[in-house]
Structure formats: structure tokens, C-alpha cells
């Protein structure tokens, strides 16, 4: 229990730091984003400016501490200001439209890639002396060296442009609507395959390599030799002794990797014009929509930290040493 509390505390603290970084960044930056904002916001009614004023320090008459206080309160209220490029919509409204797409696409793709990548990694480690295992390893090593967005481009080029098996982009066909039910869902799945594949293929290598390295370390442990000596069936050694131990670092590294994968997914969305937060970030960057950029960053940070917290909890369930507070 102490462990959970400690992790919970850390979760909130990290969150707080991320929120604060979000506050400090625009003030540290050389470009004076505040004045850019003032220019862009000309004509915006005063009432909706409150959150932006605090967050970017446009209220020059207020002290920085007061601005910070206002900013924190606004965040707690869920008020992230208005989106410049989507005026007069609030940042939160814009964001909440994009979120489900990203979460759905990335969530499913990441889950798939974690499961498949981990499985492949275990097999590759187990059979590491074979040619097949080595070539699989080589292929993943190679794929991992490419930028996500380029892999996305290539997939679009070959499977949407050259051979129009899949759509070029977007999340569903024009002319299909949410209310349509099954046709809508079908369209969404159809549009999600290529971007999902991009995310899955490029992140799979990470999971595969991580678990492979863990497995190789674990396979040299004495308890594996003992398990073999005891005459346990191979599947039992592989699952209950080797993989069960090798998966631990993968799980505890999940959040860190997630930050990396989210980064890649953002780019994937940009390539596929997929209406998630990645594509939104892209547009926001083009139009210097700082409130939106900040909000997206904040949101991603929250997502990663939540994932971090969850993986800490899962580790606790999987590793008795952590449960007893013995090992970090």
C-alpha cells in the first residue's frame, strides 16, 4: 500500500511539474509569444481571453505569481482558453473532438504492437541461434531506424496511391455520418488500417528488442538452468520462468516507450491527415496557435504520466519484490 501511495504521490507531482513547465515555457522563449498572441487575438471578446491572459502573461500588470495562480485555477476548471485557429471555439472543445480518434487509433495499434512484438521477441530470444530469428531481428532493427512519418508515406504511396487498396487519408469517407451505424464503423476501420499499421510496425521493433534483451539476460539466470535441470517441460520454462521474468522491465518501461510512440503517432496522423491530436498539433504549429499547442502538450503529458502510474501498478501485481517494497 505504501508503494501505491508513493507512486500516486509521484504521479501528481509529475503532473504538477508538467503543468508548471507549460506555464514557464512561453515566458522563457525568445520569440515573445505573448505579443504574437496579442496580435492574433485582436478583436476577440474580452470574456473569453481570461485563461489565455494568465497562461501566456499577457496581463503585464499582474505579478507573475498572480498569473501562475490564475493559470492553475483555470486548468483545474478545465479552461484552457480559446483556440486561435478555430476562433471562437474553446481549446477544450477542439481538443475533445480530436481525442477519441487518437486514443482509438493509437490505443489499438499500440496494444497490438506490444502483444505481437513481445511475442516475437520471446521467440527470437529463445531461438536466437537460428538464422530465421537473426533475420527477423535484423529486419526490425532496420525498420526501427526510419522516421515513422516516412514509413507512413511509403505505406500510403504503395497501398493507397499505387494500389488503391486503402484510402489516402482521413478517418472516414465523405458522405458517411456518425448516425449511419455499421457503414460508419466500417468506414472508420477501413481508414484506420494503414495509419494503425504504420504505428504498429514502427513501434513493434521497440517491444521486440526490449523483450529480446530481457529474455537473453533472464535465460542466463541460474533459475532457468535449475528449471531445465528439474526437467520441466519447455513451455513451462519458457512461460513461467523465462518470459514471466523478462516481461517485467518491458512493463516498467512501458510509459517511457509510450512517450516515444505517441510522438511517432502524432507524425503518423499528420501524414494521413487523420483528425486526431497529432494532425491538430501540426495545424496548430503552422498557425502559431499557442494555446492549442500548449494544451496538446499538456494532454499528452497527462496521458503518459497516467500510463506510467498504471504500469507501476501492474508491476506491483507482477513482481512480488516490488510488492514488498524491496526493489525499485
Amino acid at each position: 500500500m505504501k508503494y501505491v501511495l508513493r507512486k500516486f504521490f509521484w504521479f501528481f507531482f509529475a503532473l504538477y511539474i508538467a503543468v508548471t513547465i507549460n506555464f514557464i515555457l512561453p515566458r522563457l522563449m525568445p520569440g515573445d509569444p505573448a505579443s504574437v498572441l496579442v496580435n492574433k487575438l485582436q478583436g476577440v471578446e474580452e470574456g473569453s481571453m481570461e485563461a489565455i491572459r494568465a497562461a501566456f502573461g499577457i496581463d503585464t500588470d499582474k505579478s507573475i505569481l498572480a498569473q501562475y495562480g490564475d493559470y492553475l485555477i483555470n486548468i483545474l476548471k478545465g479552461d484552457l482558453g480559446i483556440s486561435i485557429s478555430n476562433y471562437p471555439y474553446k481549446v477544450w472543445d477542439v481538443l475533445s473532438k480530436a481525442l477519441p480518434w487518437t486514443i482509438g487509433l493509437m490505443g489499438i495499434a499500440t496494444l497490438f504492437s506490444f502483444i505481437i512484438g513481445t511475442f516475437i521477441g520471446i521467440v527470437v530470444a529463445w531461438k536466437r541461434k537460428t538464422k530465421v530469428a537473426n533475420s527477423v531481428l535484423g529486419i526490425f532493427l532496420f525498420i526501427r531506424s526510419f522516421p515513422y512519418f516516412w514509413l507512413g508515406l511509403i505505406l500510403v504511396y504503395f497501398f493507397a496511391f499505387k494500389k488503391p487498396l486503402f484510402p489516402l487519408g482521413g478517418a472516414y469517407s465523405i458522405g458517411v455520418f456518425r448516425g449511419d451505424g455499421l457503414p460508419f464503423i466500417k468506414s472508420v476501420i477501413y481508414h484506420g488500417i494503414l495509419p494503425g499499421l504504420t504505428i504498429a510496425i514502427s513501434s513493434m521493433g521497440y517491444w521486440m528488442l526490449t523483450i529480446r534483451n530481457n529474455m537473453i539476460n533472464v535465460l542466463a539466470e541460474d533459475y532457468i538452468i535449475v528449471a531445465r535441470a528439474k526437467g520441466l517441460p519447455l513451455t513451462q520454462i519458457m512461460n513461467k520462468y523465462a518470459a514471466r521474468n523478462a516481461i517485467l522491465p518491458s512493463v516498467s518501461g512501458f510509459a517511457m516507450a509510450l512517450g516515444f510512440i505517441i510522438g511517432g503517432s502524432l507524425l503518423t496522423e499528420m501524414v494521413f491527415s487523420y483528425p486526431g491530436i497529432g494532425f491538430m498539433l501540426y495545424q496548430a504549429v503552422q498557425q502559431q496557435d499557442y494555446p492549442l499547442i500548449q494544451a496538446i502538450f499538456l494532454f499528452i503529458a497527462i496521458a503518459v504520466m497516467t500510463a506510467n502510474f498504471l504500469s507501476d501498478i501492474v508491476i506491483m501485481l507482477l513482481d512480488p519484490r516490488v510488492r514488498d517494497g524491496g526493489k525499485k
Binding site: 509529475a14 511539474i17 508538467a18 513547465i21 510509459a255 517511457m256 509510450l258 512517450g259 516515444f260 505517441i262 510522438g263 511517432g264 502524432l266 498539433l281 496538446i296 502538450f297 499528452i300 503529458a301 503518459v304 504520466m305 506510467n308
Partner: peptide, 8 residues
């Protein structure tokens, strides 16, 4: 470590 670097 936990702040996602690419978005940052």
C-alpha cells in the same frame, strides 16, 4: 523521463 520528448 516521463515528459514525452517529441511533443515537448
Amino acid at each position: 523521463l516521463v515528459i514525452p520528448s517529441l511533443p515537448l
